[in-house]
């Protein structure tokens, strides 16, 4: 019994740590995602309204 407990304890601890790490990683992941979401909101507002026509008409001459 004692042996089993000894084995289980570090495992649990390590699982707790993992959970904590995951929590903080997902927290900053959430922040990043929120920041990207805000940006994508902005982009939806300023993006060329007729994308297909814009892309089709975007023709440049070769240069250099």
């Amino acid at each position: 019994m004692a042996e089993r407990e000894q084995i289980r304890k570090p495992r649990r601890e390590s699982r707790d740590e993992e959970v904590e790490e995951t929590a903080s990683a997902s927290e900053s992941g959430t922040e990043l995602k929120a920041e990207l979401d805000d940006l994508l909101d902005e982009i939806d507002e300023v993006l060329e309204t007729n994308a297909e026509e814009f892309v089709r008409n975007y023709v440049q001459k070769g240069g250099e």
Binding site: V55, Y58, V59, Q60, K61, G62, G63, E64
Partner: peptide, 11 residues
């Protein structure tokens, strides 16, 4: 590039 095969440079 215009995405259509025309390129211009940044030298």
């Amino acid at each position: 590039s215009d995405g259509k095969g025309n390129s211009y440079g940044c030298h």
